[in-house]
Amino acid sequence: MIAPPVSSGDQFIFYGLLKQGAASAPAHLDFPRHGEFLGPCRFRGRMIDLGGFPGVVPGEETCHGVLYRLDTARLARQMDEFEGIRAGNPDGSLYRREKTDILDDSDRPSGERAWIYTYNQSTDGYPVLEDGNWPLEKGRPRT
C-alpha cells in the first residue's frame, strides 16, 4: 500500500525531528525552499518517547506540534522516505502518513485537517510524554 497522494498546499503537523529547529533534523529536507512553517498547533494522540525521537499513536491527549504548509508536493516523497514508509509493506513501515484534525485554542477540532506521521510499530516499554510536547533539543538521528 502506497501512502495517499499529497498535493501542493497541503498542511503537515511535525512534532519531532521534522520540527523547525529540532536537534538531529534531517539536513537533506529543504523545508524553507519547499513550503512555510506556519506556527504552533495542537492535535489529538498519545506521544511516545522512543529514545531520541517521538512517535504519536492514537489517543485522546492533546499533543503539540508545528504546522507546515507544503508548496512543492515532491518533497512529500522524501519526507515519507525519512519516516520509513515502505511502499508495498505497510506493516514494516516505521510510520504511516494520515490526516488528523487540527485543534483550536479550546482543544476542539478547528475544521482544518493536516497530514501527520503516526508511529506504526510496537510502543511496548516506551514512556508516554505526558505533556504531549517533544523538546527540540532532545532529538538524535534514527539508525
Results as ranks from 00 to 15, higher is better:
Ser106Glu: 15
Pro90Trp: 11
Glu98Ser: 10
Gly111Ala: 07
Asn89Cys: 11
Ser93His: 08
Asp71Ile: 00
Ser93Val: 08
Ala3His: 08
Thr123Asp: 07
Gly125Tyr: 07
Ser106Met: 13
Phe12Ile: 00
Asp49Ala: 08
Thr123Ile: 15
Asp30Phe: 06
Pro40Asn: 10
Gly45Gln: 09
Gly132Val: 08
Pro58Ser: 06
Phe14Ala: 13
Val66Ala: 08
Trp134Ile: 09
Leu38Ser: 04
Glu61Pro: 00
Thr143Phe: 11
Asp131Arg: 15
Arg108Met: 10
Ala22Asn: 13
Ala23Leu: 06
Pro4Ala: 14
Trp134Leu: 07
Gly45His: 02
Arg108Ala: 14
Pro141Phe: 07
Glu98Asn: 13
Tyr15Pro: 04
Ile116Arg: 01
Leu67Val: 00
Val56Phe: 02
Tyr126Arg: 14
Leu67Glu: 02
Ile102Asn: 03
Thr143Leu: 10
Gly59Leu: 04
Gly55Asp: 00
Asp105His: 13
Tyr95His: 14
Ala114Lys: 00
Glu112Asp: 11
Ser24Ala: 15
Arg77Val: 12
Glu98Gln: 15
Arg97His: 10
Cys63Pro: 00
Pro40His: 10
Arg97Cys: 11
Phe82Tyr: 14
Asp71Val: 00
Pro32Gln: 05
Ile102Pro: 01
Lys99Pro: 08
Asp124Thr: 14
Leu50Trp: 04
Gly55Trp: 03
Met47Phe: 04
Val66Cys: 05
